[in-house]
Write a protein that binds this DNA or RNA. Structure first.
Lengths: 339, 339
DNA sequence: ATGAAAGCGCTAACAT
DNA sequence: ATGTTAGCGCTTTCAT
């Protein structure tokens, strides 16, 4: 069976015996239409299975495409999946659809995707940046009026809207929780590279908590890891120090997993642990894992709302929205230090 | 600053002093062009920051939009996120981008999304169906030549390409593993409703394994759950039976989590467990969780390849691709039955 | 090697 | 209440 040509507005018009514009009016409900023609038109639309070509419509109206371009480092990461879901919920009512691409944390690929999305004339562009990408080149794009918004981390080299977690505050709270249980030497296992925004913020929170408690900051207790394996190795290393930490703060979700695995394998259940970002099954680990939970759905929703506000003409200066984190106490932070 | 109008092909042409068509030729490399004009054109393109409007191009060429529409029940589920990533990798080389929507397992919303995607003239449509949706209505759409492809479950009411895991075989292998360790009463905690494809297949595999070992099938050992909480409750119920199972087979990932949680809370570590679908941290649970792992990236990749083949003119009849599952032995299946 | 005109499917702006 | 014309930004077709 050869592919039947998709019916056009014209086909419907001919079928009914009216002009294309009349059909258009019925479908979009702008001009006035008699009830009789409206009915006939709708019947013909149904019969032919007509679907207006959205691209043609967008071209003619000159407006942007009714899509939001979203670039994330990794789709398999439920954090970004949930963020995407939050965006979708927020913009669905406005008829916007998500165009999604993953950069694999490669700045070049991220640029490619952004460029494709802009060529598609997306209504708005949202980017959860890859490690090491710079966004100064987006200034030109933004001058054309496309709202550009950053997720999880602010843009580099560009003042743009962004939505982030309360990284510093969250980390401070998590570390303060450990300090409250008597820990004075607390290891920090964070992301790499050291300059990475989320790592920097969370490390700052860690130092805030130490300072507030009058504890010294010891660089020997700070490790960097960019994979679960790395984090496990870093955990082993910290625990092997001459004057080892009695508690650990894992500053992101794979650090959390790596640390949990390392502690379990080393049978070091007495080491207290708080992690940034929640993980599945945290409550049945032994001990149950205390975390500083992010709210990815809220991040997505806030991003969606900000984009809509920009599309509605909000020309205010770049705005940073901070989404609260929440300390979820489950037990692993309450192990007392052993001496 | 007012939004600067996006430059068009015409603007570039004027800037250089040639016709629009010449610019088009340079950019698409079809007609012949002199090296001199090519250079001038490219310079002007760079200077103006011109990006061809993909929608306009698609309209004119009459081809489908260079997107693949993907509908999944839930974006936050890493299974679907990873599937999406697999699709993207497979089709990226052909310049196709993902248009993504989540149905929230609501058939009406799924239909809406599909309809929007078709109106956008996607090159291909991929659907991981919501529970309870019927797809007979897609026959019309498919007659227009859009490849339609189902993920995770086959279509209902329509013969279409689909890519699924080896559910039956995988379940059989997982249950056989339990039988090999001496279990004769094995509980099955599956999805709801009972008619759901994946549940049916996995239950069939469970029965295959029982039959192969000459064990009776006892309906009292089969439970249904559609959330982690449900699954935990079902686990408690099965363990409370007069003649309780000594092992459990959790037939999907939330059943897995629910069962793990229930066993941990009831301190019933001696109950053997195998789960369908891998979960994070499975290897540090106590005991480490043995699973029948799916390969979502391979599912996505296969789907992408199938779609490309269809776009390349493959008109063969509907094809079902089965992606192998893999038994990952970690320990929880090796608890011996207590008597 | 380049340009002019026509048209993809639709809607804005003016008719009637 | 409906039709006509023009044109969105691009590419096809046919000239030159």
């Amino acid at each position: 069976m050869p592919a039947t040509r998709r019916p056009t507005l014209h086909d419907v018009a001919q079928e009914v015996g009216v002009s294309a514009k009349t059909v258009s009016r019925v479908l979009n409900g702008d001009g006035p239409t008699s009830a009789a023609t409206r009915e006939k038109v709708l019947a013909a639309v149904e019969r032919l299975g007509f679907q207006p070509n959205l691209m043609a419509r967008n071209i003619r109206t000159g407006g942007p495409d009714t899509t939001i371009g979203l670039v994330v480092p990794d789709m398999g990461n439920p954090f970004f999946g949930t963020v995407a879901g939050g965006i979708e919920s927020a913009v669905r009512g406005r008829g916007l659809t998500l165009l999604l691409g993953s950069s694999g944390d490669d700045p070049a690929r991220e640029r490619d995707l952004i460029s494709t999305f802009l060529a598609r004339r997306v209504s708005a562009l949202m980017v959860a940046p890859a490690v090491g990408s710079d966004h100064a080149y987006l200034k030109a794009a933004r001058a054309t009026g496309v709202p550009v918004l950053f997720l999880d981390r602010p843009a580099t080299g560009l003042a743009a809207d962004c939505v982030v977690s309360s990284n510093r505050d969250g980390a401070r709270t998590g570390v303060a929780h450990l300090i409250a249980y008597g820990h004075r030497r607390i290891g920090f296992i964070g992301d790499r590279p050291a300059g990475l925004y989320t790592r920097r913020e969370r490390l700052a929170g860690y130092r805030d908590a130490l300072a507030a408690a009058g504890l010294p900051y010891d660089r020997a207790l700070v490790a960097a890891a960019h994979s679960q394996q790395d984090a496990a190795a870093a955990t082993d290393r910290l625990l092997g120090l001459p004057d080892p930490p009695t508690a650990l703060f894992a500053a992101n979700n794979f650090a959390a997993m790596g640390t949990v695995v390392a502690l379990a394998q080393a049978k070091r259940r007495e080491v207290a642990l708080v992690a940034f970002d929640d993980i599945p099954l945290a409550d049945i680990l032994e001990p149950p894992l205390t975390v500083v939970a992010q709210d990815p759905a809220a991040i997505g929703a806030a991003a969606g709302r900000t984009a809509l506000a920009r599309l509605d003409g909000d020309r205010g200066s770049a705005r940073t929205t901070v989404i609260d984190t929440r300390l979820v106490v489950r037990g692993s932070g309450e192990q007392r230090p052993r001496r």
